[in-house]
């Protein structure tokens, strides 16, 4: 166990913030003030946080359509995110992007991404910049199980090996890509993401993505390797998403009780609490205190987002080159 009390408490706060952020959106979306499609990350928090606690602002991540957790874990401002999701001028992207396109380059967050498989080539490209800069920075592509069937992801993995780049390909296997399970779509279950990545010539391993410590440790090794010129790594973390693919998904493809069972037996927050209290690393009271602070932050974020103005209509043609 290498983490200090402060680090543990921060990890807990990050995971809790993601959970409350997403659970609150789940309540807010039916009220009709949040435009567009929203994909929630609840159940997967230990992956975003376990990965990003190994990174600095100067390291980069790419994300997916299910990006809120990645953004929070990488340090994006929670209020700016909430305002963006409400399409307000005060949002991190000025209301231009919304849930699927939250970005904060100053935090090394290169964008949530509406295109499945869009992120890994970008992360690989960022790692070329890092290699050439020579300061030991790394790029991490956070991607879903579904994205591992996308050609550009394979191409990015091969190029990363070819150039021995400081990039890590993280596949979050949350049991589904929309309605399709990896047991069908990923080689009919005859292979998995780890074996595929090994086939490209990089070390790869797999861990329980609901176990913060397992994710943290496995990522730590990969980051270490990348920072010291050892080249790319692929990691697969298993978990289950608690909500539908998007808010509004009827989820008939899922067995009754699947989510309840996961919430009961493999919840990353519950497991974390038990681990750190059993080991007497943190006390329940201090985590309860964090819980209260997080709830307050989310309350404020929602209230401030709703009170914020929409961007002016003239913003439509701002930040795009027009010459006619």
């Amino acid at each position: 166990m290498q983490l200090s009390r402060e680090q543990l408490l921060k990890a807990y706060r990050q995971m809790k913030t993601i959970r409350e952020f997403e659970d609150r959106l789940h309540e807010e979306i039916p009220k009709g003030l949040i435009p567009g499609f929203t994909h929630l990350y609840s159940g997967q928090e230990a992956i975003a946080v376990g990965v990003c606690e190994n990174l600095n602002d100067s390291d980069a991540i790419t994300s997916t359509h299910r990006g809120h957790g990645h953004c929070i874990a990488k340090g994006c401002d929670v209020k700016g995110m909430m305002a963006e999701i409400y399409g307000r001028a005060t949002g991190l992207c000025g209301g231009k992007g919304g849930s699927m396109h939250i970005a904060d380059l100053s935090k090394g967050m290169l964008g949530a991404n509406g295109i499945v498989g869009g992120g890994p080539p970008l992360a690989m490209g960022a790692s070329i910049a890092f290699r050439n800069r020579g300061k030991g920075e790394v790029a991490v592509a956070l991607a879903g199980d579904g994205s591992c069937n996308s050609g550009p992801v394979f191409e990015a993995m091969n190029m990363a090996v070819m150039m021995s780049l400081p990039v890590i390909f993280v596949f979050e296997n949350n049991g589904y890509s929309e309605q399709t399970a990896p047991a069908y779509a990923v080689g009919a279950g005859k292979t998995d993401m780890v074996r595929r990545a090994e086939g490209f010539g990089m070390p790869a391993s797999k861990a329980d993505g609901t176990d913060f410590f397992a994710v943290y440790e496995m990522t730590r090794e990969a980051v270490e390797r990348a920072r010291t010129g050892g080249g790319p790594t692929a990691l697969e973390f298993t978990c289950l998403r608690y909500f539908g693919h998007f808010e509004g998904d009827a989820q008939k493809y899922r067995a009754k009780g699947e989510v309840e069972m996961a919430r009961e037996t493999m919840d990353c927050l519950k497991n974390f609490r038990k681990r750190v209290t059993d080991a007497k690393l943190l006390e329940n009271a201090e985590m309860d205190q964090v819980d209260a602070e997080v709830l307050k932050l989310i309350d404020e974020a929602v209230a401030e987002a709703i009170a914020a103005p929409f961007p002016p209509d003239s913003d439509v043609t701002k930040n795009v080159y027009i010459n006619y």
Binding site: Q179, T180, A181, Y184, A185, G189, A255, E258
Partner: peptide, 21 residues
Amino acid sequence: GEDVAGGAGGSSGVRDNQSGI
């Protein structure tokens, strides 16, 4: 196409569950 048949391999085993996206 993707999820045209409601996805395959889901834990409920139900196909045609959404008649495509």
